[in-house]
């Protein structure tokens, strides 16, 4: 089956005013199939949100991209603004935003925003009973209570604002949903409800790219996990294997998981390198207990892990 989204050696760099260039994404490759949820995890500043912006064509002007990201026949990186605006955003890629409160227009009710989006993206017409039905259906789909439709965004709780934003994202029936840190600032119950709802929406025929630093949220709904570190995807693994047994194979991913409060709660020593001065070799080597001379070369992503000395499955079995 052909994947919904196929990202091939995607790189993004920013040209800064002083001639410095920032490598935000290096050589990212992954596929995303219908019915699948891929969680892209990593700490803030690792480049994961830049990757999302690149897929939506929303990079700032000083950004340069390389590689490709095919959504069907369209290369999202090569498409012009007109194509992106008229045919891609909302219609073929739905965005579930980071802060719904900022994403919704503060001076208009949820109903009017849904109605506008529906009349833009579908054939439900501009007014009349048909549109009203469509609005109700769209709200219902995201479990947004119908009696709150006439409220303004500031009158909604965080959870309801998130549902309103999700309802907007779902209107266009886009085959790809892109959720950029959809749970930041929400409390645990709400995080779980939000990601569960996202999971439910993708069903069998859509794909979800969940960008988050919340490993618990990723564990809850992801089929696969991509771990990003200093602009590179360092591990791409099955979620069950990653969070359960045999566990992560890249030392960084392993450290990140072990830092969780319900595991060892121990930080990885040191801090990630600057994206302006990435080392020539493996970017994690400076913090890695396993590093040796071979780490002076950047490891490619082989068999789901970009490391010269990955944890082997066998070692883990004996430990467990």
């Amino acid at each position: 089956m052909t994947p919904v989204l196929s990202v091939e050696r995607l790189s993004v760099r920013f040209r800064m005013r002083d001639g410095v260039s920032v490598r935000a994404v290096s050589d990212a490759s992954f596929d995303l199939a219908a019915g699948e949820c891929l969680a892209l995890v990593g700490e803030s500043g690792c480049g994961k949100s830049v990757l999302a912006s690149a897929l939506l064509g929303l990079l700032p002007e000083n950004a340069e991209t390389a590689g490709s990201a095919h959504l069907g026949d369209t290369d999202l990186l090569a498409a012009d603004e007109r194509t992106l605006a008229r045919r891609i955003r909302g219609r073929r890629v739905g965005l579930v935003p980071q802060s719904p409160a900022a994403h919704l227009t503060p001076v208009r009710t949820v109903r009017s925003q849904l109605a506008e989006t529906i009349s833009q993206l579908t054939r439900a017409g501009r007014r009349g009973p048909q549109l009203a039905t469509a609005v109700a259906a769209a709200a219902d789909r995201a479990a947004f209570p119908l009696d709150h439709l006439d409220r303004y965004p500031h009158e909604l709780s965080g959870g309801l604002a998130q549902r309103a934003a999700t309802a907007l994202a779902l209107v266009g029936d886009a085959p790809l949903l892109l959720a950029d840190e959809p749970t930041t600032g929400l409390d645990r119950d709400l995080v779980e409800r939000t990601v569960d709802e996202l999971r439910r929406h993708i069903g069998d025929d859509r794909a979800l790219l969940l960008i988050t630093h919340d490993l618990a949220a990723a564990e809850r709904i992801a089929d696969r996990v991509a771990v990003m570190y200093a602009s590179r995807i360092v591990e791409l693994a099955d979620a069950d294997a990653f969070f359960g047994s045999p566990g992560p194979r890249h030392p960084y991913a392993r450290g990140l998981l072990n830092a969780l409060p319900d595991r060892e709660f121990a930080p990885i020593p040191g801090m990630p390198p600057e994206l302006t001065t990435l080392p020539d070799g493996c970017a994690f080597a400076a913090r890695c207990a396993r590093a040796d001379d071979t780490c002076a070369w950047v490891p490619g992503l082989l068999d789901g892990v970009a490391c010269h000395h990955p944890e082997t499955a066998g070692a883990e079995v004996t430990r467990a």
């Binding site: 700490e43 930041t184 600032g185 450290g255 998981l257 830092a259 409060p261 930080p267």
Partner: peptide, 12 residues
């Protein structure tokens, strides 16, 4: 709340 697991553990 805005931080990744490793930074959280470090700050705590």
């Amino acid at each position: 709340a805005m931080l990744d697991a490793s930074t959280t553990a470090a700050l705590v």
